[in-house]
Design a binder for these strands. Sequence first.
DNA 1: CAAGCCGTTTGATCTGGGTCAATATCGACC
DNA 2: GGTCGATATTGACCCAGATCAAACGGCTTG
Lengths: 236, 236
Amino acid sequence: MTSLKAACSQCNLRELCLPYGLSETEIAQIDQLVGARRKVKRGHHLYRAGDPFEAIYAIKMGFFKTDILLEDGRDQVTGFQMAGEILGMDGIGTDIHTCNSIALEDSEICIIPFVQLEQLSREVQALQRHFHQVMSREIVRDHGVMMLLGTMRAEERLAAFLLNLSQRFTARGYSPQEFHLRMTREEIGSYLGLKLETVSRAFSRFQDEGLISVHQKHIRILEAAGLKRLLNHQPP
Amino acid sequence: MTSLKAACSQCNLRELCLPYGLSETEIAQIDQLVGARRKVKRGHHLYRAGDPFEAIYAIKMGFFKTDILLEDGRDQVTGFQMAGEILGMDGIGTDIHTCNSIALEDSEICIIPFVQLEQLSREVQALQRHFHQVMSREIVRDHGVMMLLGTMRAEERLAAFLLNLSQRFTARGYSPQEFHLRMTREEIGSYLGLKLETVSRAFSRFQDEGLISVHQKHIRILEAAGLKRLLNHQPP
DNA sequence: CAAGCCGTTTGATCTGGGTCAATATCGACC
DNA sequence: GGTCGATATTGACCCAGATCAAACGGCTTG
């Protein structure tokens, strides 16, 4: 575990991340707060369900998934997180993490000790506000996933998933059309409530229809409008 | 709209609600904060998707559902809320509510203006802490629903739903075995990602197996252990 | 570069829950 | 107390996606 001192003030993600909307002087205060950086190798846990909760984490670079494991062995991926996004808020409620957070590629995160975050957000109103917004957005995102799992058919789910990834990559300065998936078909399936074969078939069908091109984990979106059309169309 | 002054200090829900864990003097401060009570008649909205966000709401008495409506007409119930629970946190992220909140029976809520809540929680650490816990628990609850929608079969979903309701009624001093559902089969189905016929059939099957007795909206749990067994069993 | 091992694709078949339809029951309102 | 619309139950049939199975491609590793 390497630990460089983090510095939000130097970070090009600050407009996507926790410091969003803060003034220069306020960001300087956050620099104090953010403890250290930590590297997490691909496949390693950032935290596990059951771990005591001490901090939330901002992704400096890399890609994560969170999942929940039931006693009977079934598991569910609850989210994929990329640079600038916040991990660990599941632990605040009970002081114990309730899911696992696993790096899908070699990653680096900033540790934000929670006691100090609360302390500072009692002093810096804009920070308090923004932290509440981050939590609320997580709730709204989860509602979106519930919608997806509860009402959409397989192809709609995958289309929604691809468009969501595309949009998030775009916000980070990458191409909206072209990206490579960090997760396996099985992980996508778990997130979308589908089996990996169904995910694979849906990819193939999208490709046949000329909406995307797929080669393994490499995705190119050829016709975003076609994917969007899938979403707003009622199932038969 | 009737508006009585609320008084957390007098409220028998305070140990379930926002004031949880606060001292007498701190609760007195909350009394200042909580604006007014408001009655919401059965079938009426507390707020709608698109409404500007101004306050969160604590349910004083009654029963609510939240739902999301897609442009194409599909909708999904995202939750059912009962006395002592908090509504409206979906609006914090964007300053606009993202779902509808509808009373399923004549209800009464306490209005907690959000600006003032943030103000006071900058001063009262225990309040800040608890509010963060409430939000985090909402996230964890949503993960549970994702798990349910993503990995469970129809009967498991319904069993989980009944046990969850039972547990929440118990926490409010009602019978764990006997309660009446405030929502229709269709609303249960929407929440659980099932059609109303499937919900109805699952109820009938539970009744045939002697696990519960159902008469319309009246439920009596006869063998909670049997329902729990359904949950921890892997699907074939 | 051969051997293995994942991860992925594709085909064939099966099934849980959706769909469609008919009937039953309840509660609200004249 | 009778009518009507909303809610619930039950049956018959069907299909999207699961399951089972086989083969393939791209890596890592010796």
